[in-house]
Amino acid sequence: MLVKLAQRLGRHQWFARTMRVILPPLDIRVARLTKGKVVALGILPSLVLTTTGRKSGEPRRQPLIYVPDGDGYVVIGSNWGQPNHPAWSGNLLAAPAASVLLKGQEIPVRAELAEGPERERLWELLLLTWPAYSAYAERSGRRLRIFKLNPTR
C-alpha cells in the first residue's frame, strides 16, 4: 500500500522538490544505523552507492532506488526531475569502479552507461518499480543516465 501511494505521489513536482531534500540524508542515517539492511525506509528496493568524487577524490554516498537485473543492479540519474545530472552519475562516468551497500553487504561494482536497445530495456524495468521516472524525464528536459552496476567479485 505504501509503495502504491509513493508511486502516485512521486509524479508530482511538489513531492520531488520536498523529498529530494528530506530523503537522502534520512536514508543515509537509516542505512548507517541498520548497517545497510534498510534504505529508503524499506518501502522501495534501494541501495547506497559509493562513488569516488571526480573533483575531490573522496568517497561520495548516495541512496538510490535500484532494479535487479541478472546479477547486477540498475540505477538511474533522475535527480528527482531536476535539469542537471546528479553528481554521482558524473562520478561514475569519470571512475566506473564503485560499491553498493545492499542488505548489509558492501559489494564492489563496475558501472556501465546503458545505451541503445539495452537502455530501452532497462528503462522499462525501471518504470515498473518507479513510474514517476517518466515524469522526471519530461520535467528535466534531458536524457536520464541509466547505469548497470555489475559486481566485480
Rank of each mutant, 00 (worst) to 15 (best):
138 E>N: 14
56 S>W: 10
2 L>Y: 12
90 G>Y: 01
54 R>M: 02
6 A>H: 02
150 N>E: 15
10 G>V: 07
113 L>K: 04
6 A>G: 01
64 L>R: 01
10 G>Q: 00
140 S>C: 06
89 S>Y: 00
92 L>N: 01
45 P>R: 13
98 A>E: 01
7 Q>F: 09
125 L>T: 12
57 G>K: 07
122 L>Y: 13
46 S>H: 07
76 I>M: 14
86 P>M: 09
117 P>Q: 14
41 L>I: 12
68 P>T: 14
43 I>H: 05
42 G>W: 04
136 Y>C: 09
4 K>P: 06
50 T>D: 03
29 R>E: 09
99 S>Y: 15
18 T>G: 09
69 D>S: 15
93 L>C: 05
114 A>D: 05
120 E>Y: 05
135 A>T: 15
79 N>L: 07
70 G>R: 10
51 T>M: 00
123 W>A: 12
34 T>W: 10
17 R>Q: 14
104 G>E: 14
122 L>H: 04
35 K>I: 03
71 D>L: 14
58 E>A: 09
86 P>V: 00
151 P>D: 12
41 L>V: 10
24 P>K: 05
9 L>Q: 02
137 A>Q: 14
109 V>N: 02
124 E>Y: 01
1 M>H: 10
61 R>P: 11
54 R>N: 03
36 G>C: 07
21 V>I: 13
145 R>N: 08
114 A>M: 10
40 A>L: 15
53 G>C: 06
28 I>P: 01
127 L>N: 07
22 I>N: 10
67 V>D: 06
30 V>G: 03
145 R>L: 12
30 V>C: 11
100 V>S: 12
50 T>E: 11
49 L>C: 03
53 G>A: 03
54 R>H: 04
31 A>C: 00
10 G>A: 05
40 A>G: 07
61 R>M: 08
82 Q>M: 05
